[in-house]
């Protein structure tokens, strides 16, 4: 017998907003503000020497030595097809742990500057805007509207998924 008590499930939209509510680390790329789920963030480190790795997509800046561990670093500006910008003293690397094929992978992402940790309520979250074809809105979980600011809540697992890195690296190797 399988009949159990029915799972109470609210509306799909509000349900997902409920799931998304929580603390986010916000950072800036240019004028835009993005948020990363705080549980994915391991630490924030200042900019350091990055060793370029050949045969990788352009947005992969290279690898760094994080206390004896070699981790890849991604330039989020390039990943989001924004203009490159010289590193400033505010540029930093957010070290995140993302799930990737049942494993946790540690990665660094380079951002212009880290802002704050923001508490985003379910009521403040709206579903990601349906943009036209060709826009990569896959990795945006939702839009947070807090104190007149719009924060794009990123799906770290998607943004930094291995599959994509491997795919792109394969493509560039074939050039």
């Amino acid at each position: 017998m399988t009949q159990g008590p029915a799972q109470t499930d609210g509306g799909a939209a509000s349900g997902s907003a409920q799931k998304l509510a929580g603390k986010y680390l916000t950072f800036k790329l240019g004028d835009e503000v993005y948020g990363l789920e705080i549980l994915k963030v391991q630490e924030i480190i200042g900019m350091m020497n990055v060793t370029a790795v050949p045969k990788t997509p352009e947005f992969v800046r290279g690898v760094i030595n994080l206390r004896g561990k070699v981790i890849p670093v991604i330039d989020l500006r390039l990943k989001f097809q924004m203009e490159t910008k010289e590193d400033t003293e505010r540029t930093c690397i957010i070290v995140v742990q993302v799930a990737c094929e049942e494993q946790t992978v540690t990665m660094g992402i380079i951002v212009d500057e880290v802002s704050e940790v923001l508490d985003v309520d379910a009521s403040q979250i709206e579903p990601p805007p349906a943009m036209g074809a060709g826009t990569d809105s896959d990795f945006i979980l939702g839009m947070g509207k807090v104190a007149n600011k719009v924060v794009m809540l990123l799906d770290a697992d998607r943004v930094l998924s291995t599959g994509e890195v491997a795919e792109v690296s394969g493509a560039s190797a074939g050039e």
């Binding site: 690898v63 890849p72 990737c100």
Partner: peptide, 8 residues
Amino acid sequence: LGETMQGI
């Protein structure tokens, strides 16, 4: 180099 950078 980690999972993501293997097989280069």
